[in-house]
Nucleic acid binder design. Structure first.
Length: 506
DNA sequence: CGGATTTGACCCGCGC
DNA sequence: GCGCGGGTCAAATCCG
């Protein structure tokens, strides 16, 4: 397990470096070449013409020869650059393949572990847990056979759902989105809207909309089923965060405890898209915007939206796969994570919290993009100030080499047996924490190297931007085929921009 | 004029 | 059972 994770991480960084280098060359070298060409072909300028007329034939001839040799040199240089580009591309492709295979193996192992633990826990939990799982396939939604669903679903509700979703949904088997890809890891009861063919992965909220209720007015089964919500905290002056999607506001409420109104948005990219988001400003720090996403997009997303979707997808997956390893009897709602293990490798830069959930039913994970300074003090204050109700939170520190964002985990148990906090702690202890601990005891070359690289905040931000683009766009074959060259190119340009920013800051 | 936003009313789950 | 609060609806309004 550790080896796989280590290899994954190293591959990640190498991949980043390769992409960075290749894009940098692509962008910089043509410009240099262009300058050289301008210099060598500048004979047409009037000033130079005058000079040419005033010198003898020999001089002109020798100058032409010089320029030709310069041109040859430039051409040769260009050829070299192109060769190197090709080599880097090949290396990149190779890395990408390796990365994907490792990623697959990694998730296989995660799945296996989850299933092992599920076997060991109480029977009722075995039934419950799968519903909460999300896959990490970043938007791909392999659907369960329809028949499986129909056996568990209320027939009335299925009818309604099929009417609501329409044929569009029947066709779409792949989605890009927030990654609440429940079906890939079995969610038999949960979303009956999906039963119609795999779309609209979830009713947008725990409360079933009127249209989703059966004729008796009874909520469909599993209406209270827990789904992950991903909350993103960003510093943003605009009323909403530009996440690349199109949203339509459908409501606004002033929530208790926060005078700032909470706005409700629906995704309008596709008519039947179930994704909703809530946007609210932080009470204490108005510059912080809290955006909470819920649901899975049932349509291809633009590249920019894919970035956010991928990020939130990963977060949600982390949250929900962690839940599968939870232990009964641990109430995470009011109990801070026992941080002793984490403190063993505490570098006091990033902290994990277990706030009470903003939502009574849905586990929520919060990506805190405001903690850019990685300062534990600012992170703590921003959290406590923004969550007045979270008086029970205690910080847990962990190494931030492995985590770009501060992670806030919020979970509310339904019946008391659900224990996400412990699970989350275990999950990260198994994956990241142990590695950090290892690194401190057996400082390997690769660890030192990656730590050295990632300790640069500029580099990290560049990598974060680029990775989110890459993973978001590259993880989905459908999207790739739809996006085609244009988006691919855009991605590369983004890479180039990010890389350029990085180098220019240096 | 059509789409987006606003806003008061309504629904529903939860706690007491 | 009742009140509270979060979430949603839908008519009114705004805006390009």
């Amino acid at each position: 397990m550790r080896i796989v994770i280590n290899t994954l991480k190293i591959s990640f960084y190498i991949l980043c470096m390769c992409i960075f280098l290749s894009n940098y060359k692509k962008i910089v070298m043509p410009n240099e070449f262009f300058k050289i060409m301008l210099n060598s072909n500048g004979r047409s300028s009037s000033a130079e013409k005058k000079v040419d007329q005033s010198v003898g034939y020999q001089e002109v001839h020798s100058r032409d020869l010089r320029k030709e040799s310069e041109l040859d040199n430039a051409k040769a240089e260009l050829g070299e650059v192109m060769e190197e580009n090709a080599r880097l591309k090949m290396a990149l492709n190779h890395m990408e393949k390796d990365y994907h295979s490792l990623q697959l193996r990694f998730f296989d192992i995660l799945k296996q572990q989850a299933s092992k633990k599920a076997v060991n826990v109480a029977g009722h939990r075995i039934i419950e847990e799968p519903e909460e799982l999300l896959s990490l396939c970043l938007g791909r939604s392999p659907r369960e056979p329809k028949s499986d669903r129909e056996t568990t679903a209320s027939s009335n509700f299925i009818k309604v759902a099929q009417v609501d979703d329409g044929e569009e949904n029947l066709k779409a088997n792949l989605t890009l989105g927030l990654g609440s890809d429940e079906t890939s890891l079995e969610e038999p009861n949960k979303n009956h809207a999906e039963a119609g063919g795999g779309e609209a992965s979830s009713p947008p909220s725990s409360k079933t909309p009127k249209t989703m209720r059966n004729e008796d007015g009874e909520p469909p089964p599993q209406v209270n089923a827990k789904r992950a919500r991903v909350s993103v905290r960003t510093r943003c002056d605009a009323p909403t965060m530009n996440d690349g999607c199109q949203w339509r506001k459908y409501g606004q409420k002033t929530a208790k405890g926060n005078p700032c109104p909470r706005a409700y948005y629906r995704c309008t990219v596709a008519p039947a898209c179930p994704v909703r988001k809530q946007v609210q400003r932080c009470y204490e720090d108005m510059s912080i915007l809290i955006t909470t996403y819920e649901g899975t997009h049932n349509h291809p997303l633009p590249l920019t939206a894919t970035c956010m979707a991928s990020t939130t997808s990963a977060a949600a997956s982390m949250l929900l796969s962690g839940s599968s390893t939870s232990h009964p009897g641990f109430d995470s709602t009011a109990t801070p994570i026992n941080g002793s293990e984490f403190r063993a490798f505490d570098n006091s830069r990033t902290q994990l919290y277990m706030p009470k959930s903003a939502h009574p039913l849905l586990p929520t994970i919060t990506l805190d993009l405001t903690a850019s300074t990685s300062s534990s003090s600012t992170f703590t204050s921003s959290l406590s100030s923004c969550s007045p109700s979270d008086s029970n939170n205690l910080p847990i520190s962990w190494g931030n080499e492995y985590l770009r964002y501060g992670l806030l985990l919020s979970d509310k148990t339904q019946v008391g047996s659900y224990n996400l906090g412990k699970a989350f702690q275990e999950y990260f202890h198994q994956t990241y924490a142990e590695k950090i601990h290892q690194a401190s005891s057996q400082v390997s070359l690769t660890e030192s190297l990656t730590n050295a690289i990632t300790s640069d905040p500029n580099f990290k931000s560049v990598i974060a931007v680029a990775l989110s683009s890459m993973v978001g766009g590259g993880g989905d074959a459908t999207h790739r085929s739809q996006g085609e060259g244009g988006e691919r190119m855009g991605q590369q340009l983004k890479w180039g921009e990010a890389a350029h920013q990085f180098t220019s800051r240096k």
